[in-house]
Amino acid sequence: MKHEAYLFGGVAVFFLLTDVAYIWFAREPVGIAALTVSCLMSSVITFFLVMNYKRKGRRPEDRPDGEIQERSGRVDFFPPHSPYPVVTAAGVTLLAVGLIYGAWLSLIGLGLLGGGVSGMVFEFSGRGDA
Rank of each mutant, 00 (worst) to 15 (best):
E4T: 15
M120I: 09
I68Y: 12
K56D: 12
L16M: 13
V75I: 14
T18D: 10
E28R: 15
V50D: 00
G31Y: 12
S106Y: 04
G102E: 06
M41V: 14
S38D: 11
M51I: 08
L49K: 12
I108N: 00
V121Q: 09
C39N: 12
V20A: 13
A5R: 04
A21S: 12
R58F: 02
G109K: 09
L99E: 00
V92L: 02
G98V: 04
D129P: 00
R74P: 00
V92K: 00
R127N: 10
A12G: 04
L112Y: 04
F47S: 11
T36N: 10
S125L: 15
R58C: 00
V44S: 10
R55G: 01
V75A: 13
V92N: 02
V37W: 12
R55T: 15
G128S: 05
L94G: 04
V86H: 02
L113S: 03
V20T: 09
D129C: 10
R71M: 10
I23Q: 14
E70W: 14
V87C: 05
Y84A: 02
P79A: 14
V11S: 06
I23W: 15
I68L: 13
V50N: 03
T93Q: 02
V11H: 04
A34Y: 12
G73D: 02
L113M: 07
S118H: 12
W24S: 12
R127L: 15
L17E: 07
I45S: 09
L40R: 10
V30H: 09
L113Y: 00
V87G: 05
A5I: 03
V37L: 15
E28P: 02
L49F: 13
P79K: 13
R59I: 08
